[in-house]
C-alpha cells in the first residue's frame, strides 16, 4: 500500500478520534454511541499501521489493489453503523409514541377533572392560574 495513503489514513484516524472526543465533551454525544466512532477510528488506524495484513487478504478475495480493500472495509463499517443508528431511531420512535399516548390519556383526565369542578373555581385561582380551553 502506498505510503501517502497510509499517512492519510493515519491522520484521518487521529482527526476522527479528536473529533469524537470533542463531540463527547462539547456536543453531548453519549459514551455508548461514541463506541461506534472509536471503533471506526481504530479500524482506520489498524489499516494504516499494518497494511501487510491487507495484501494477502485482498489477493484471497480477488481484489487486485489492496487500497480497494480499505474502501470495502470502510463501506462494511458504514453499513453496520447505519443499521445500528436505524435501531436507535426505531427505539426512540417507539418511546416518543408511548409518551404522546400517555400524555393524551392524562390530558383527557385533567380536562374532565377541570370540567367537573365548579366553573368559578377554574376561572381564577389565587396563584394567577388560568383556565385552559
Amino acid at each position: 500500500m502506498n505510503l501517502h495513503l497510509r499517512l492519510l489514513l493515519l491522520i484521518g484516524a487521529v482527526l476522527f478520534m479528536c473529533l469524537t472526543v470533542f463531540y463527547i465533551r462539547r456536543k453531548g454525544l453519549d459514551l455508548y454511541h461514541s463506541i461506534i466512532c472509536f471503533a471506526g477510528a481504530l479500524l482506520i488506524l489498524l489499516m494504516a499501521l499494518f497494511p501487510d495484513v491487507l495484501e494477502p487478504l485482498a489477493r484471497w478475495i480477488g481484489i487486485q489493489v489492496p487500497s480497494n480493500l480499505v474502501f470495502l472495509i470502510m463501506i462494511a463499517y458504514l453499513l453496520c453503523t447505519s443499521l445500528s443508528l436505524c435501531a436507535v431511531t426505531s427505539r426512540q420512535h417507539a418511546r416518543i409514541r408511548k409518551l404522546v399516548q400517555e400524555y393524551a390519556l392524562l390530558e383527557k383526565r385533567v380536562r374532565e377533572l377541570e370540567n367537573a369542578r365548579a366553573p368559578e373555581q377554574t376561572v381564577e385561582t389565587q396563584g394567577g392560574g388560568k383556565k385552559i380551553d
Binding site: I96, R97, V100, Q101, E102, Y103, A104, L105, E107, K108
Partner: peptide, 19 residues
C-alpha cells in the same frame, strides 16, 4: 384524546386501545 404529535393512524388507534 388529543395527540400533541401526529402519530399516524396506527399510533392514534393504539392510544384508544390503551385507553
Amino acid at each position: 384524546l388529543r395527540l400533541s404529535i401526529n402519530l399516524g393512524i396506527g399510533g392514534a388507534v393504539q392510544s384508544g386501545y390503551l385507553y
